[in-house]
């Protein structure tokens, strides 16, 4: 039986730590600056500057988020458990009346809160700048983008905590975190495309679309680009992506499962380490 008070105590401490060492502020500033620059200069290659339609702005920001948020989330969480173990503070924590699952969930909740506040604050500023030019639908679309950015961060944070539980030391954990980022952000899509080309398109169709669900960054991209008709047409990929997957609720469910599954694996492993 989980005790929410114990989870909140650990979460509060983790969140407080990130506030006090200005991590939240620094990351929010990074998001704000990058997002403003991308939103304003995103069309510079086409010879124009300035804020464009919300769909084009989101499309530009999606690329930023896909590179930045997984990296930040992995760096935030990779030493959550292994760091405590290596410093020698894990035994002291576990000597308290707290279970390993509560400790893990508390760590996760605190770090996720810090990441969420940074993300919402960072993109919130951009939202405020864009607000005068947004109608209700566009505002909702931008809110959806921020929400899915938070989900993406939470899913990579969940992966980071899993690595932190499995790794035997911080060096290995950081190596695994970086490898994980490379795989999901850079390599995964190349592999899929390589497979598609190598099989002359025979291995494609619906399978290709479903395989994208195995990568949270692709799910995020799909959620923010392929579910918008205008964007699908713009990218010319409407025919590649199966219609059955173009349902936001399904994709959000997949994102949530990317939060839950790695965390559940981490909790199981952490319990067994006793």
């Amino acid at each position: 039986m989980l005790d929410p008070a114990q989870i909140l105590t650990v979460a509060g401490k983790e969140f407080h730590d990130r506030l006090r060492n200005r991590w939240v502020l620094a990351v929010a500033l990074v998001f704000t600056v990058f997002a403003l620059v991308i939103a304003y200069f995103g069309a510079a290659q086409q010879g124009a500057v300035g804020f464009r339609s919300i769909h084009l702005t989101i499309a530009s920001l999606v690329s930023l988020v896909i590179y930045l948020i997984p990296l930040i989330a992995l760096l935030l969480g990779f030493d959550a458990i292994v760091g405590e173990r290596e410093r020698g503070s894990l035994d002291l924590l576990l000597s308290m009346p707290i279970t390993r699952t509560e400790l893990l969930l508390g760590k996760y909740a605190g770090l996720a809160a810090a990441l969420t506040v940074s993300t919402v604050a960072g993109f919130g500023v951009v939202g405020l700048v864009l607000l005068p030019s947004l109608d209700a639908g566009a505002t909702l679309r931008f809110a959806g983008f921020v929400f899915t950015s938070v989900l993406l961060g939470c899913s990579f944070l969940s992966i980071a905590l899993m690595l932190s539980v499995f790794a035997t030391d911080r060096t290995r954990a950081s190596g695994l975190a970086i490898a994980c980022w490379f795989f999901f952000v850079l390599v995964f899509d190349l592999l899929l495309l390589g497979g598609l080309v190598a099989t002359s398109g025979r291995w494609g169709g619906d399978v290709f679309g479903w395989l994208l669900l195995a990568n949270p960054t692709d799910v995020f991209r799909v959620l923010n680009i392929f579910t918008i008709d205008e964007m699908r047409s713009l990218h010319g990929l409407a025919s590649v992506f199966p219609e059955a997957l173009a349902r936001p609720w399904l994709l959000v469910a997949v994102m949530i499962s990317w939060v839950v599954v790695p965390l559940a694996v981490a909790a199981r492993r952490f319990r067994n380490l006793a």
Binding site: K13, R87, D91, L92
Partner: peptide, 12 residues
Amino acid sequence: YLPENVVLYDNL
């Protein structure tokens, strides 16, 4: 419990 190499939290 006082562990051998007590590590506390520098930010607190």
